[in-house]
Nucleic acid binder design. Structure first.
Length: 266
DNA sequence: ATGACTCATTACATGAGA
């Protein structure tokens, strides 16, 4: 089975790219982030015509996540139990459309869009840290309840765990994505036995998954590694290979992120 | 050329992204 994750930065703006990608790369399960579409406007038909099932979650033009599967799609959850809410000052905080989980062919897959953080000290940064901490807490609980669980937490984690995960660490001093609290929150999944399998299979520096649209970041290969897959031990032991589809960043109409795939033993 | 931000919206400017 091949499971992929991709921050698509609008599923409607890139519908042709997504459907072509599913076919060309023989994808069984695709977790999308930043679909940027409310549920009533999600373009489901093109996926159903390719014999995929689909579950999506979006309130407005921000965030939005989806799961697309041809190996089954049951037990759909549109947030995780501890997922924190966020809102502007004076507004009622909302649990945003940043997580959707389902059982896809026996693998419990979560498509996750971790909050950006905006700036160190911004309320959005506290929200980001809380989101990661609560997710790690829930994962630990699920694994304690069932140590044989095949669980995959995939998506845009918005954290660059190592200095080699950004092209110039000095530029990120005092910025989001590389700060010590963010890296600690990211690493907390390992305390519950989860394993970040993309690093296990692709340890080399410079394996970027994101390049900014501005300042020729892609042609100059000035990228960031911020898309990951934390797996339970039972699933991590079945991962045979990982692919980062760098070529999807090429050309007109590309997302700023590329797909990351896990090949799981049958 | 791998190429000079991009997306969606109570749209012609703004907010968000990283």
């Amino acid at each position: 089975m091949r499971i992929a994750t991709w921050n698509i930065n609008s599923v409607r703006a890139r519908l042709d790219r997504v459907t072509a990608y599913l076919t060309e790369h023989n994808i069984d399960v695709l977790a999308l982030q930043e679909t940027k579409v409310k549920d009533g406007a999600f373009p489901a038909a093109p996926f159903e015509q390719l014999n995929y099932e689909i579950a999506y979650h979006g309130f407005n033009q921000w965030n939005g996540v989806a799961l697309i599967s041809r190996v089954g799609l049951t037990q759909v959850h549109r947030s995780f139990p501890g997922q924190p809410a966020f809102g502007k000052p004076g507004e009622t905080p909302q649990v945003e459309a940043r997580a959707i989980g389902a059982n896809c062919g026996g693998v419990h897959v979560w498509s996750l869009y971790v909050p950006h953080g905006r700036a160190l000290g911004d309320p959005h940064m506290a929200y980001k840290l809380e989101f990661l901490q609560q997710l790690a807490h829930d994962a630990a609980h699920w694994l304690t309840a069932d140590p044989t669980l095949r669980l995959a937490l995939v998506g845009d984690f918005n954290v660059a765990p190592l200095d080699t995960d950004v092209w110039d660490p000095a530029l990120f001093e005092g910025q989001t994505h590389t700060s010590a609290p963010e890296r600690a929150a990211f690493a907390a999944f390992e305390a519950s036995g989860m394993r970040e399998v993309t690093r296990e299979h692709i340890p080399a520096p410079g394996a970027y998954t994101y390049w900014d649209y501005q300042q020729l970041r892609f042609p100059k290969d000035e990228g960031m590694r911020i898309d990951f897959a934390y797996c339970s031990p039972a699933l991590a032991n079945q991962v045979r290979a990982v692919h980062i589809r760098r070529l999807e960043r090429k050309g007109k109409g590309a997302s700023d992120h590329v797909p990351v795939e896990l090949d799981i033993a049958d």
